[in-house]
Design a protein around this nucleic acid. Structure first.
Lengths: 255, 255
DNA sequence: CGCTATTTTGAGTAAGGTCAAAACCCGTGG
DNA sequence: CCACGGGTTTTGACCTTACTCAAAATAGCG
């Protein structure tokens, strides 16, 4: 597994936020270019890490946030009984690790769902720079705040919505995030397994699978393993919002 | 209802954090006294507000955080269909409103569960002071971080645990928070209705009621309307942690 | 090409929800 | 002091959604 051939030391590459196309979606959002330079000094790019490798685990000492540059990451917590609860899936421009600040150690774990690159944002240094750049401090607060409202929304979805509605929200959420990244809002790959979708949404893998089949039968989506195309976005939105009185299933084999 | 007799203008009273007994549980935690003085200048105490009154509502412009001084507050979000999801209950020393930072307006609502007093922490000013007091910036980050991990835990509880386990966690959570405030860990009043407990935990009011009855039948608690005494804390803890193989119910009338 | 992991589908079940009614609590006014 | 009325809580009977268990189908990999 050791690769002595590797010449490039990614950790030495200065990740130049200014040139990064995620720039406006990420921590630097709203910073002026002179401030950006200060930030760039402390941000470190990374080797690509492969699917299944952890960025950090629960109880690891907390040193940095991580900004996803490419690929995707799942973040989860574990309880006493060893059960895993996925807290979120993270895509380029999104930042993880905020929950580590309080106790100076991570209380969640983060693992790559596919080959993934990211930038490290060392907390102590970010902290220092925040004291000099009001916009950056503000942006940090904003990102933390966003994380909180995202979780509020997730809680609402899980606690108040049926399996079908949760699944629809999930598909829409991915869609809009991919769109923001400049990808198609209608067609994307699911980087996570059915298992992981179920875990995240509080459903079993069987229920997830049945819902995919049902959505497909009803012409809402076209699914081929990990590839999904949203065929009827308005209808999916309608399910999200709790309309579509019962989503009657065209279950009949004849037709 | 107007009381012209009222002389004291609470909003003019400088809430002196230094003298506040919640001091170490609240925003000032870890600040040196000279820094505390700077903070005190911007913190404003409040009139008591009565049960049912809102501190803020969704879409209100976001100006301040609020630190609960006495009483209790519930925070909730609402979806398109008008359904309410309670995000948390807040007690003295706890701070609410963090989710408003991102869009400069509140995305949740906060309402007093009983007569409640609080301090206003104006965001812009806190922001400014953070630029001068590293410890304060740090504390802000810590509090935001804590809010995130709390929600992670809640998500885990709701998504992975049975009704019974959720209820047990809830009782324990209240217990430990009251204890931190110097109150009894075994005996307290529930400031919220059964309805609200159910909403928070993702259960119906009937299920909440049945669980209270069951817990009482099995000698875990003694409940009289809002008053609750935890009779068997270890057993309640055991349920939380998923032990207690099925919590067999002594449902038999004979015995 | 065969092995394993993942996904899909089916049949039966259980936990918690729904609907309805009774009990209780508390404030109000006679 | 007691009767009334509205709201909340409790209890009961029944039902539905999503879970469990099991097996078949499919995909991915050596």
């Amino acid at each position: 597994m050791s690769e002595p051939v590797q010449i490039i030391d990614f950790s030495k590459i200065k990740a130049t936020c200014s040139n990064c196309n995620l720039h406006e979606l990420c921590l630097p959002h709203g910073l002026q270019s002179k401030d950006l330079e200060k930030l760039e000094v402390v941000v470190k790019g990374s080797h690509p890490i492969e699917k299944g490798k952890h960025l950090f685990r629960t109880d690891d000492s907390f040193e940095s946030f991580y900004a996803v540059r490419s690929g995707s990451v799942k973040v989860y917590v574990i309880n006493e009984s060893g059960e895993e609860q996925i807290i979120g899936f993270y895509f380029p421009g999104e930042i993880i690790g905020f929950d580590g600040i309080e106790h100076h150690k991570h209380v969640s774990s983060a693992v790559a769902l596919e080959t993934t690159t990211f930038c490290s944002l060392p907390y102590d240094k970010i902290n220092d720079i925040c004291m000099q750049i009001p916009d950056l401090q503000n942006q940090m607060f904003r990102l933390l705040s966003r994380e909180i409202s995202n979780e509020n929304q997730l809680l609402l979805t899980i606690n108040k919505r049926s399996a079908e509605e949760r699944m629809a929200s999930f598909l829409i959420s991915l869609s809009s995030r991919f769109k923001k990244l400049g990808y198609s809002a209608k067609e994307y790959n699911l980087p996570m397994s059915r298992q992981e979708i179920g875990n995240y949404l509080g459903l079993t893998i069987e229920t997830v699978s049945r819902l995919f089949s049902k959505f497909q039968r009803n012409g809402l989506v076209k699914i081929n393993r990990k590839a999904i195309r949203l065929e009827n976005l308005p209808a999916i939105h309608a399910i999200c919002d709790g309309f579509s009185e019962k989503t009657k299933d065209n279950n009949s084999s004849s037709a």
